[in-house]
Amino acid sequence: MWDQVTEALIGADVGATTTLELVDAARGRLRAAGGTSSADVRGALTTEIRDRLMRAGSASFELGPAPSVILFVGVNGTGKTTTIAKLAFRLRADGRTLALAAADTFRAAAVEQLRIWGDELGVAVIAQRPGADPGAVAFDAVAAAESRGLDAVLVDTAGRLQNKQQLMDELAKIRRVIAKRLPDQPRHVLLVLDATTGQNGLVQAEAFSREVGVTGIVLTKLDGTAKGGVAIAAADRLGVPVLFAGVGEEIDALAPFDPDAYVEWLFAG
């Protein structure tokens, strides 16, 4: 039984080290409480994983008083731009006023991609020419949010590998530029993590948190067979909650992250 759950967790990208910790803790729990059935084992593990996911506090996303600057960060190809469109759709449905900031000035056509979403959602997109200083775009966006009295501005940034110090410095600068204009901002720094990612996800979480202070995680591409188990260690290590789950390509395919449902699905095979 223990071998089986250990394999299930490792197969879900929870990571060998974290899995061994979880299994040890669950064993201890069962020794104290008694119980040896497979339901007991699964129950003990479920509790352990939930504890780790919840240790950082509640997983509900509060926009906070206007304006809220939300900075999206992550490595290349995790789905930052798509997640911004989805979150904008959610916030619009709640009647919030928004702007999107195209601070990914590096990837070819990233600005166009955000513009297309903005048009579709009827949300203003703040952009400059490709290759422009992303800090300047972020500054413009924050200024616009203030002058137009918007509830929130969602800032898209270029994907970057966390071991490229120069690019990480650039990201830290974007953050500083925002904070200079509006102290206490960005209120949210969301790390977009691809559920297909293996143990490097933990390295990503630590590096982005060190540079720009991640406040929450969005776990994307959960509509495939990948389980994204590395998010458990990442949330625990950073002490931040997983806030949203990306579950499809449709604009409404972003769900608030539900730890209970997630853990159940983790063992569902």
Partner: peptide, 12 residues
């Protein structure tokens, strides 16, 4: 294939 892919790589 993304070099950062985890256990899913085989299935994909």
């Amino acid at each position: 294939v993304d070099a950062m892919t985890g256990q899913e790589a085989v299935r994909v």
